[in-house]
Design a protein around this nucleic acid. Structure first.
Lengths: 122, 122
DNA sequence: CCGTATCCGATCCGATACTG
DNA sequence: CAGTATCGGATCGGATACGG
């Protein structure tokens, strides 16, 4: 991922990283600890393999996520949050909370329930 | 702004709103209270009139920002954060904090200083 | 001072196919 | 199982001009 050369504000920078379609969700999924690629792929409804890989790469590049690879067959990796990842998770939880509030107020929760998506903020 | 009809997760929804290039910065600029359009335009370095207006409109649409218009000439408006806006501000402050850390660690602060941008997290 | 409309290049992201 | 490459439509956002 290519950043601009100059940022006039730290938020511009964080936003550049977080704006990708799936990043907040990936970080949120990692809240409970390490997770293999295929687990992530299974749990994040709708994401393509390409996007998951690409976004994980960028999250690693900026120190929000790290991974551990195990050599052997079949290949196995574990992705997990770094300290910086945990920190932004606390911001993401607030945003999730706001999302839940909004969806409840506007009767948008049927989709959540129907698909059995977990949206606890633990 | 047109949202999707169904969201499987509240974060997907919040992200749809927050992903726009200037939204986090606009919210951050409003942290100290009400502000006219031209003040915002002056203080947010690099934003075009079109984008500022568009993003403010969307932020209002989803209840993060509200405005008060005064009839008369010249026209005068005041934009300010709603309660929901204040709540997401607390998440944005965390992200700003992360951005500052990152920029310090990676010697990226020269741009901030040079342009005299305020980036306090108060 | 505040807001709208349009045009157009840049970027994003989904589908798909292929490798170790 | 994990990762890479490419193609093409959709969306984003900057420039610019105009209107209340």
């Amino acid at each position: 991922m290519k950043l601009r050369e100059n940022y006039t504000c730290p938020l511009e920078f964080v936003h550049d990283i977080i704006k990708g379609k799936w990043k907040t969700i990936i970080i949120f999924q990692l809240r409970k600890g390490k997770c293999s690629f295929s687990e992530l792929h299974r749990e994040i409804s709708g994401i393509s393999q390409k996007m998951l890989l690409e976004q994980l790469k960028e999250l690693r590049e900026f120190g929000f996520v790290d991974k551990k690879s195990y050599s052997g067959y079949p290949l196995q990796v574990e992705y997990f949050l770094t300290e910086r990842g945990e920190k932004i998770l606390s911001a993401i939880k607030i945003m999730q909370d706001i999302g839940i509030e909004y969806m409840i107020e506007n009767n948008m929760t049927q989709f959540l329930d129907k698909k059995g998506i977990k949206y606890d903020i633990s």
